[in-house]
Each structure stands twice: as C-alpha cells, then as structure tokens.
Design a protein around this nucleic acid. Structure first.
Lengths: 329, 329
DNA sequence: TTGTATGCGTTATCAG
DNA sequence: CTGATAACGCATACAA
C-alpha cells in the first residue's frame, strides 16, 4: 500500500500527483510552488516512497557536494583528528566526504587525485608528501602543511610560532641547555619551520641549543646515540628537549627511561601536535597543540569558497602550549 | 596543443578519433576492440586530455562502486582503525568510501542512511547505537557489533570468547579474586557478551568473581566507589580485573594510581580492543585484541557479495591476548 | 567488430 | 506559477 515500487522517480511522482515533472523538482528543491500543487506532490512522494537521486543532478549540474580528502592513513591519531573535523565541517555545509588514503605512496597520491576527479568531486583537500606532485588547476585544491605555489592555498599551523613558543616555554621553566629533535620527511614543508622558530627563539633568548634532524630513512638509533653522547657521569647534560612530534617525543621518553633519565625532573620535554590518550583524554606529553578543528574548518571554507581564485595562498593558524606531565607544572 | 578543452566527453573523443561513441566506451572499459580503432581512440583521448566521468555510468547502471561507512567518529582510536581497514579493503576492490559520522546521535544515524541512499551507494556498513534503527531492505546493509535480525548480516569479534580468554588468562597469571568492569550502552549488542564469556569461564574455573556494569549515563565515580569498597587496610582485595574496553581500563588504572594500588603487582588488568599508542606502537594495556583488519575485510566482502541474500547473519572473528604491561609477563 | 540510438533522473530554459 | 522538453555523459541493446 505504502510503497508501490522501489525506484520511483520524479516522473513517477509527477504522474501520480497529476502535475509536471518540473513542478516536482521545484517542490523537492524548496522553490516557490503554489500551495495546492505542493500538497499534491508531497502526498504523491509519500505514497510512492520517492527517494531523491543525486546522480541526475550531478550529471546535469556537474557538482556533487562532495569533497575528497587525501591523507596518508587514519591510524595515526593526528590524521584521524583531521579527518574527523574535516568531515564535521563539511557536513555543516551539507557536503559529503570522499576519504582517500595515500599511505605515503607518491603514486597513490596521483591516482587518488585522478579518481576524485573522475567522481566529479567539487574540490580536493590533501596532505601529501610526493615531492613533485602536480596539482590540478581545473578543480579547487587545498593543501595542508605544504606550500606549493601562490595558486594553491596552503593551510597550516603556525609552525614557526610553535617552535618559538616551545623555546620560550622551556626557558621559562628553567631550562639552560636545550635541543631540538626531529625526524623530517624529505620534502620541505611547513612543519620544517618548527625548527626555525625554535632556533630563532633560542638565539633571541641566549639559550644554548643543539639540533638533530634525522632524514626520513635514517634509523631511530641515531637519535639514541645523540642522547648517549650527551650523557656525562650518568646524567643528561641537556635539561630541555623540543621534539618535532608527540609521537617522537614519546619514543624519546621511552629511550630516556631505559637510560634512567627521569622526565620532567632531569629533562623537560615538549612535543608537537597535541595528541591525547584515546583521542580525547589527557595529553600524552607536554606539547604544542595544533588547532585541528580550525585547520579543518579553514580547509573546508577555502576549498568551497565561491571566489576560489582570490583566496589567500598561505594561512597559518595559532598554536597553544598544553601541559602534559613531561614538563614542570 | 595537448589539452583542447577542459571537459571532453566520450562524444568528443569519438569525433576526434573518427569512430563511434560506443567504440570509445568499449575502449575505456577495456572490452574487445580492433587494434587500429583502439589506437585511434587512445590517441584522441591523449590529445583531448579526456577524463572519464563516472556520473554517466552511475545514472545508467545504478551503481557507484561506493560504500557508505557509518561510525560514531574517528577520534576514538578503535573507530579510526576500523575506518582505515575498511577503506583499504574497499580500495582493493576498486571501491570508494563515503564516510559518515553519527556521533552517537540516533537521528543522525537515520539521516546518514537516507543520505547514503540518495547518493546511490552500493551498500552500507554501519556501527550504530540507535535502539530502534530500521534497516533498509533495498540495499546491502552490514552491521558491526550489533545483531538486528537474520536478514541483516552482523560482523563482530568473538566477544564471548574474548571474555572467556580474559578469565583464563587472569587465572593462569595467578589471580584468585577477579572482577569485570564495564560501561555499557543502553542497547544490547555483541560487546555485551564480553561479560557473559568472562562469567562463564570464571564459573568453570571456580574463580571467585564480581561484576560491575555501569549504564551509559551513570557517572564514572560509581566505578571508583566500587574500587574503594574493595579496599581493606589500604590494599585492594581483588587481584585481577577484566575491563570492557582499553579506554576504560586506562581510566581504571589512573584511579588505582591515585589509590596507591600498583599495576600489575597488586592487581592485574586486561582490557579489550587492542589499542596501541599512536595507533601502531606498543599496546596501552594488556588486552584482548580485536581483529580489526579481518572485521573490516569481512564487512566489505559481505556487503559487496553477489549473493547478499545468502550471506551468514552473524560472523564472529577470533580474538587474541596481547601483553601490554598491566599483567605479569 | 563497429555504428546507432535510447534512456538512466535531474535541472533549467522557454512557452504558456 | 506551471507545463513541456532538451540536455548532462555514459552503457548497452540492437542493427549493420
């Protein structure tokens, strides 16, 4: 009785209601329609159990209200957060998310972009690592954490400011000899500026510092070697560490534990990202927090911007310090 | 020279190549085509920079090679893992993922399903909590962790077996008085069986046990009260805890720390899920590991099954024990 | 094997 | 304000 047929179309509804196809479309899209007509159409929709089919509109109009998001994976907590907030920002605007994982594979990054275009997405938001990725110019494209050119908007945290903040915080907490530790990808991207900000602040503050940046393929043991080399009489001669990511900070802490160096008593540690236990509980380490929700929101509003051509080419969003047990309170 | 026009279609390619539209379609879809024709078409595709548009095919054939995945969010590590493996399993089959977050909101769960249908997805995989969710019967629908009816395939871990395993493990590790702790959602779902398996094994083993199941809205302090009530002379009279999730296990450990009870010396703790630090590092607690990759793979192969009607209505996948520092080694 | 022609469900233009 | 009709890009049944 209630459902006559599985795939009723607007044409079926029109026939059932005794009106024209166009009228049904107007009702469905909430446009101006006479009250009696609207009632007839709505009744017919109910009777037939009509379900809107977005494919027709896409074919006709060319847009899908769908944005592709390309990230390496969703296992890494930072990416998981990003995916979450991007999707929420999209949904607020009645958009869908096509989620793609590159797994740090440069060929896949290229395939995903092509696939997204074949699916007529209205735009692409991507966090990529392919050193010579070519950005399509026929579709709004926004990158996260990586600047390509002035015609490709890049959204990032204020990485430089974050490095600056970390150095100042360590100084303020009484550190007198610090180091910056990082595992860096081969490409130059915005996160590379964490070091620059840190170094700049150390110089300003007159705070003695060292820097160790491991290239992506190099073994983690090099970092442990660095720490070993800074031990004297069983004590670490550094009393403050700024580490490029929370993940790496965590590993460093495990290493220090094995070396019987206590955190934060012997050495204070600040990470970067703002990762929390189980996603929303306490922070894993004292850290510089990326404003993930803001980043996501900005990516979405940028990629959907009506005047995409006039959009800023680099937007850096402010970071904050968060105590997480690995610094003095 | 290379790109004549942004939106070349098969018709354009056909004209450029001097062949029929159908021939282009056949070439693009890798069907049998004469060698000379194929060459002409491929050349024209190259010249025009033709990009396949999947919308036309969807309109024509009704399928999208897209599956909707509905989960509460992606901040919670377990869901983030699930999303990851589902997407990988889909991609292996050349399918896309439309990711939807319900945020535990029952109304949103309903909206997401409707939205997915409007977007012509080929199937839906959902992990939901709406107590009276009505499952559409006109589209393949697979649920995770929750049995609806024999016509709706449910994929889950062997939760009962996991509870059993936890009890046996605690016994084997020398525990003599144990408890099960859980915060349970209001609906009955597969994870509810963790308790049943645990209780069943304790009875078999003659292991004294207690059970505390908090309803979803109840405050966590009730759990702390339970622990306090089992203190005698500053010592906990329980020496083994099986906790419904790793997240809760972690919170319990924090509470115990405040009560000066040490883990695993005074009390051994086993969680459930298999969450790791930063997604892929060491486990957070000793735990029963859900086979997330298998679950994802099974969901995908089930929802895409050619004979969806004949698919099993409940598939339970084996869990394993993993040492994570909160039990004796 | 290749060409031709139709229709998938919708939007938008144009008449009425 | 409503009705009729022509696209949108592609797959496919049918004719050649």
């Amino acid at each position: 009785m209630s459902k006559e047929k599985a795939g009723a179309t607007m044409a079926d509804v029109a026939r059932e209601a005794g009106v024209a196809l166009g009228t049904v479309s107007r009702v469905v899209n909430g446009q101006q329609v006479g009250e009696e007509f609207r009632a007839k159409v709505e009744e017919a929709i109910r009777r037939l159990g009509y379900q809107y089919n977005s494919t027709g509109r896409t074919l006709r109009t060319g847009h899908t209200n769908t944005i592709a998001l390309i990230v390496p994976n969703t296992i890494t907590p930072y990416f998981a957060l990003l995916v979450h907030y991007v999707n929420m920002a999209l949904e607020k605007r009645n958009c869908r998310m096509l989620l793609c994982f590159s797994e740090y594979d440069r060929d896949r990054e290229i395939e995903m972009i092509q696939m997204a275009k074949q699916n007529q997405v209205d735009g692409i938001i991507a966090l990529t690592y392919n050193p010579n990725l070519v950005i399509p110019d026929d579709i709004p494209f926004v990158t996260i954490d990586r600047f390509f050119s002035t015609s490709v908007p890049c959204i990032a945290s204020d990485n430089f400011g974050g490095g600056h903040l970390a150095a100042n915080k360590l100084k303020e907490l009484g550190c007198s000899r610090v180091a910056f530790l990082q595992v860096s990808s081969t490409i130059t991207n915005e996160p590379s500026k964490r070091k620059d900000g840190f170094v700049s602040a150390c110089v300003e503050l007159g705070l003695p510092f060292e820097v160790l940046v491991l290239e992506d393929g190099q073994p983690y043991t090099l970092l442990e070697d660095f720490l070993e080399n800074h031990m004297e009489n069983g004590k670490l001669i550094l009393d403050g560490l700024f580490v490029g990511t929370d993940t790496l900070a965590w590993r460093v802490i495990q290493s220090l534990k094995k070396m019987h160096v206590s955190v934060p008593e012997d050495v204070q540690i600040i990470g970067f990202d703002g990762i929390r236990m189980f996603g929303n509980m306490e922070p894993v380490v004292s850290t510089i927090v990326q404003p993930v929700a803001d980043i996501a929101e900005t990516c979405v509003s940028t990629v959907l911007s009506k005047h995409f051509a006039n959009v800023p080419s680099l937007i850096c969003l402010p970071v904050t310090y968060l105590y997480g047990g690995t610094t003095k309170a």
